[in-house]
Design a protein around this nucleic acid. Structure first.
Length: 948
RNA sequence: GCCCGAGUGGCGGAAUGGCAGACGCGGAGGACUCAAAAUCCUUUGUUCGAAAGGACGUGUGGGUUCGAGUCCCACCUCGGGCACCA
């Protein structure tokens, strides 16, 4: 805010002046279309603008346009990508950089329910407000490329991509472009294969002899997007189903925190599991942190093993095991309480115990079932199954440590080789024979005598050790073998030969539940006839979300497990009943009344930035190839830099990769992966204060005094948390603009640490960057007149410093080490400050280096330096290599590893000269105290160490 | 429990195995001012010393090395993720 005091020079870089400069340049950039990035083809084509420049695609995770607007914690990543984009533009790149809004979702819908205002209206208002706030930061977005997922012109293509997925199947036989995992193919090719007979139908009958209903069912079962009666998470409190990923560990909804029930329901699913292997393997192509890659791998949860069938009176019980080699040690089986065969297996004298156990397991909250430290519980069904390798009759139990949702919901229990099975056997007094002979030292380590009765062991044995008691008389003999890997292979071969199982791979990843019974989302481009779903032709898109003033789904008592979903769209009969002519005459159809989950719009938005107004395609192939295609030099294609929060490490990134891969298989995009380089920025934390009643108080009103924190007269306690409304510790960027200006805010956020680190917000620290800009300004501009003032040309030392700075800032910017780039620029400016004013030949490079960081003030200074055009596309300074090498250098000298002195030698002095100079140094002679040097180590350009 | 990541001044943080603490905040002293704010200058790891100078110092304990904040081993603490996944 303007300071009225008359003794402040009129042209000091004050907050008021900064504001004036910033608003003026923001308008100038808009008027001159400064940030428009040309495309090679299509509506945004400008081949001349593209020619001769390398492309760079920089992307932020786009925000949900919330009603509360931004606080200073939000734009950390945006400022980082803006600095990088501006730097790369100055390095000659054609940079695609924009921002969109992920605007479908629950908050807008809930707000609409409360106020009756249509979500489209609130969304538009929120988007406009966020655009204003982001513009005020000086972000160099290409405004033409901005998108909003709720715009029918956008979601038309979300629906189109859905139809591409719906109209595809996964052919595991057909090699994908890169290898052996199969690929998506158009469903028409599957139909053709059935029609021609080249692919047999499931029951072998000729395709033409099947009824239409049978044909449709077979086709629908192959689709990558399919309707399925499947166990889903039904949340009566929300009135909708939610994806597994949206259920918290304690079995409640991510949003709203309502109970969630497993129910079988017909819902849209996406066959993401078909891509499980590729989603793991292709992580190797990506420049992502190991932490995120690990999280994705763990989520997909690949494990190799075998499926094995155990015969029982109720039929075969199939299990998955990662240790088929331990089959001889399987002495009992355990089924999940929910397993379909439990009823058939339970004998009459055990039926009441089994029923009781199943009831109590069902009543248990997931969080309790997941408590690892809990004692093992379970009951015997009364039945036995046959161990296929040795014919042993083994008891079948049920227990809640076996989960229905993983593998087959049944396990073979090998107590000697699995800690959980071991505990279970101990608890219920079941025998534990050994099938591997641990080494004597293993027994010694556990303080017991070697024994093959594993019930004497303190724990199960896992590892390589010779097999014992592991042979049958039908050709399988592991005894004496010491390799687990070989054991697995031999057992798998035996299982196949004897038709009792096969080696396979199991995944934790489930198919993606894709439908929601809500209003504010993309409608499905699907109608139904009596046989099932029909994808609408492209010409019918978009299927526009129908107008209504009744936005809420029907919700139920939060524990009404057996209620059924009822979407708001269900009620709109005028919309759901629709006539189409698909070539067999006009007929009535029923529309799908689900909407897509919020993830849908964010699965492909980066592609629409590339060609936002294209009416004929979701993206022009030439445009896509230009921005996203693989480059030589090991770059597999995709976004060059994707910056966003780590909270999207699994869901968004996994879903978006999946969609991209389908589009890749179908030939619509040219890169296997959407996001080549991922960078997770840190969070901005802020102090939050609680009073004695544990209630948060407004942070801005808290003062520190007498070693404590006070809210008025009341002592409060401090904690650190994510900035936001709930902790009452949000700081608005508007306040920072008023007090310092946007350039200072940008510099402050970038200076407080490396981009990927979380850091606390300290409003009192912001002044440091404000002072820095004031000094920069004063070194170039007369504070009384506002006129440019420059000193004489730089001396040699200043020149060298300038070029060292250029060199350092360039590499720091390239590596996104923006914090250290800033400190180097401060050092340079501090040196200039000592000179009194900026040397004429340092001013321009300094201003150019500042431009990516604090673009407004840089533009203003550039103008004062006599330029009439913006510096957006000026070349970033290049260091003169000759000036990076000094004539003489100062070397530290160590004696026995302790620093004792410094010597000055010629930069290119030979080692023996350096050594002689070091030994002649007075302080070194003192430190040696007459001792004879045994060895002198000279590290050229670094140090000298004398060992005495 | 498992998997990631991180521990450096009063605070945020710098440091290709080579002078630890760059840069910023805060503190101290000074200039300007009637005074204050703002701004500018000097100084600021701890400790012994009047000073010159010395000793100590990057979570703890070991190790490798001429030399370790950095590499290796073990442990402690904090943050994040997963959690009976067969």
């Amino acid at each position: 805010m303007a300071r009225a005091d008359s003794d402040i020079p009129p042209f000091r870089y004050s907050a008021a002046l900064a504001q004036d400069i910033e608003l003026r340049w923001q308008d100038w950039w808009d008027t001159h279309k400064s940030f428009e990035a040309p495309n090679p083809a299509g509506p945004l084509a400008d081949p001349e603008g593209v020619a001769g420049r390398e492309k760079l695609f920089v992307l932020d995770m786009f925000p949900y346009p919330s009603g509360t607007g931004l606080h200073v914690g939000h734009p950390l990543g945006y400022i980082g990508t803006d600095v990088y984009s501006r730097f790369k533009r100055m390095a000659g790149y054609n940079v695609c950089y924009s921002m969109g809004f992920d605007a479908f979702g629950l908050p807008a819908e809930q707000y609409a329910v409360q106020t009756g205002q249509h979500p489209a209206i609130t969304t538009a208002q929120n988007v406009a407000n966020m655009r204003r706030q982001l513009r005020r930061l000086g972000l160099s977005h290409d405004p033409r490329r901005s998108i909003d997922t709720t715009d029918p012109g956008y979601y038309r293509w979300t629906q189109w991509i859905f139809l591409q997925i719906f109209n595809s199947w996964y052919d595991t036989e057909s090699p994908s472009a890169d290898g052996s995992h199969g690929r998506a193919r158009p469903i028409t090719e599957l139909v053709a294969a059935f029609e021609s007979g080249s692919r047999p139908t499931p029951d072998g009958r000729p395709w033409t002899e099947l009824t239409t209903a049978e044909q449709r069912t077979i086709i629908d079962d192959h689709r990558l997007a399919y309707v399925s009666e499947a166990p889903v998470n039904w949340c009566p409190g929300l009135g909708t189903v939610v994806a597994n990923e949206e259920v918290t560990a304690d079995g409640r909804s991510d949003r709203g925190n309502f109970p969630v029930f497993k129910r079988n329901m017909r819902q849209w699913m996406m066959r993401i599991t078909a891509y499980a292997d590729r989603l793991i393997d292709d992580l190797d192509l990506l420049d992502w942190s190991d932490a995120i890659k690990t999280q994705q791998r763990n989520w997909i949860g690949r494990s190799e093993g075998a499926r094995v069938r155990f015969a029982s009176a109720a039929g075969d019980i199939e299990v998955f095991t990662t240790r088929p080699d331990t089959l001889f040690g399987a002495t009992f089986m355990v089924l999940a309480p929910e397993h379909a065969l439990v009823d058939a297996l339970t004998t009459s004298e055990h039926s009441s115990a089994v029923a009781e156990y199943r009831r109590s397991a069902a009543a248990k909250k997931d969080i309790d079932r997941q408590d690892v430290t809990r004692e093992k519980t379970g009951v015997f069904t009364g039945s036995y199954a046959t161990n296929p390798v040795n014919g042993a009759q083994i008891p079948v139990w049920i227990a809640d440590y076996v989960l229905m949702g993983y593998g087959t919901g049944a396990i073979m229990a090998v107590p000697c080789g699995d800690e959980r099975d071991f505990e279970f056997a101990r608890t219920f007094g079941l025998g534990i024979p050994a099938i591997q002979q641990p080494s004597d030292s293993w027994f010694a380590d556990h303080g017991i005598e070697p024994s093959l009765d594993a019930s004497t062991w303190p724990q199960a044995f896992v590892g390589d050790a010779p097999y014992v008691q592991s042979a049958n008389d039908s050709g399988l003999d592991l005894n004496g073998l010491t390799s687990v890997a070989d054991g697995k292979r031999m057992v798998n071969e035996w299982l196949v030969a004897n038709d009792r199982g096969y080696g396979t791979v199991n995944f934790k990843l489930r198919d993606w539940l894709f439908s929601r019974q809500r209003y504010w989302g993309e409608p499905f481009p699907i109608v139904y006839d009596q046989f099932g779903p029909i994808g609408l032709p492209d010409a019918e898109l978009p299927v526009v979300l129908p107008e209504t003033d009744s936005f809420s789904p029907r919700t139920f008592a939060i524990d009404d497990e057996f209620s059924n979903p009822e979407s708001p769209l269900d009620r709109l009969e005028w919309w759901t009943e629709v006539e189409y002519d698909f070539g067999d005459g006009p007929k009535l159809y029923h529309r799908d009344t689900n909407v897509m989950p919020q993830w849908a719009g964010s699965c492909w938005y980066e592609l629409r930035y590339l060609d936002p107004t294209n009416e004929n395609a979701f993206v022009d192939p030439e445009v896509e190839q230009y921005w996203m295609g693989p480059k030589g030099n090991g770059h597999p294609g995709g976004v060059d830099l994707y910056v966003g929060g780590v909270e999207h490490a699994v869901l968004h990134l996994l879903y978006a990769r999946f969609w991209h891969k389908v589009l890749f298989d179908l030939g619509h995009v040219s890169s296997k992966e959407p996001y080549y380089r991922l960078f997770n920025q840190g969070m901005i934390l802020a102090a939050a204060y609680k009073d004695a009643r544990e209630i948060y108080v407004e942070s801005t009103a808290v003062v520190e005094r007498d070693g404590g924190f006070w809210f008025g007269d009341e002592p409060v306690t401090r904690e650190w948390g994510k900035m936001g409304k709930s902790l009452r510790n949000a700081v608005s960027p508007d306040d920072m603009y008023d007090a310092f200006g946007a350039d200072t805010l940008r510099l402050y956020e970038m200076s407080t640490g490396p981009m990927d680190a979380s850091r606390p917000w300290e409003t009192r620290d912001v002044v440091g960057m404000y002072r820095f800009l004031q000094r920069v300004w004063r070194n170039l501009v007369d504070e009384e007149t506002g006129e440019l003032r420059l000193g004489p040309p730089a001396d040699d030392d200043t020149k060298r410093l300038l070029h060292r700075t250029i060199d350092g800032v360039r590499s720091d910017m390239d590596g996104l080490r923006i914090n250290t780039a800033i400190s180097k620029l401060i050092e340079l400016n501090n040196a200039i400050t000592k000179l009194g004013s900026s040397p004429a030949d340092v001013a321009e490079p300094l201003v150019l280096m500042l431009a990516p960081l604090c673009p407004h003030v840089a533009e203003e200074l550039w103008r004062k330096l006599g330029h009439t055009d913006s510096l957006i596309r000026e070349s970033f300074p290049v260091a003169d290599p000759a000036l990076l090498i000094a004539d003489t250098i100062e070397l530290p000298v160590q004696v026995n590893g302790k620093f004792r002195s410094r010597i000055i030698v010629a930069a290119d002095a030979a080692n023996d000269i350096v050594e002689a100079a070091a030994l002649a140094d007075a302080k070194v002679i003192t430190a040696l105290a007459g001792a004879t040097p045994k060895k002198v180590i000279v590290v050229p350009g670094r140090t000298v160490n004398i060992v005495a």
